[in-house]
Amino acid sequence: MSPRRFRRQVSPELQARGADAEASFQAWLDDSRLPFLYATQNQQSVPKHFKGQLKRPDYLVALPFVGMIAVDVKAKSFYEGGLIFDVSEIDKLAKFDEIFRITTFLACFDPDDPTRTWWYRVGSLTARPPVRRMGAMTIHVSLSDGLEADMTRPLQEMLRDLLLLS
């Protein structure tokens, strides 16, 4: 039997913030009229031999006649002009990106303004130097390193801006 891994409990308040962010993101996708799939978050959604190595994103968004992107939605608080991500989670999303060959993004909601998100391509975060915070390896990412998205505009417009800035 393998040893149990320590998992930090997520407070009900943070769970509710995450659920609200996902609901807002899904409403934005609906308003943008793009086809998408919500990736179920149960234990069976990752194959047994990839458990602990792979994290599935929250949404697969089709860009008709172009391809698909994957998006993991986050409700994050700002810290020193940026956001903090758990290295383990970034590595697991990067593994998804690599295996499935789908560009994967983090869409991070502004806690004070639900019409704004910051987008980061997961692959661009993997080489950042980690720092230990509260027992976990993390990375700090400046807001200016992401693309600010105005969720009052359709997702297609935000993606066009993303391509122009790449």
Rank of each mutant, 00 (worst) to 15 (best):
S2R: 06
F6W: 09
F6C: 06
S11M: 05
S11N: 05
E13F: 07
L14K: 13
Q15H: 12
A16I: 02
R17Q: 13
A21D: 15
A23C: 11
Q26P: 08
Q26A: 14
Q26Y: 11
Q26W: 08
A27N: 15
D31S: 14
R33D: 10
F36I: 10
Y38P: 04
T40H: 12
T40Y: 12
Q43T: 13
S45L: 04
P47G: 12
F50G: 03
F50A: 08
K51R: 15
L54I: 03
L54W: 04
K55P: 00
R56Y: 05
R56K: 11
A62Q: 10
A62N: 10
P64M: 06
P64F: 04
G67Y: 05
M68D: 06
V71Y: 00
V73A: 00
V73H: 02
V73M: 00
K76W: 09
K76N: 10
E80F: 03
E80Y: 03
G81S: 14
G81I: 08
G82K: 01
G82L: 01
L83Y: 15
F85G: 00
F85Q: 01
F85V: 01
D86L: 00
I90D: 00
D91V: 10
D91L: 15
F96E: 02
D97C: 07
D97W: 02
E98V: 07
I102M: 07
T103Y: 06
T104I: 08
F105L: 14
F109P: 05
D110K: 03
P111W: 04
D113W: 04
D113G: 01
T115P: 01
T115V: 04
T115N: 09
T115L: 02
W119N: 05
Y120R: 05
R121I: 04
V122E: 12
S124A: 14
P130I: 04
V131Q: 12
R133Q: 11
M134D: 13
M134P: 02
G135E: 08
M137W: 13
M137S: 15
T138H: 01
T138D: 04
T138G: 01
D145R: 04
G146Q: 01
L147K: 08
T152E: 13
R153Q: 14
R153G: 03
L155M: 15
Q156Y: 03
L159E: 10
L159V: 15
R160H: 11
L162P: 00
L162D: 13
L164Y: 07
L165W: 06
L165A: 14
L165Q: 13
S166L: 13
S166A: 11
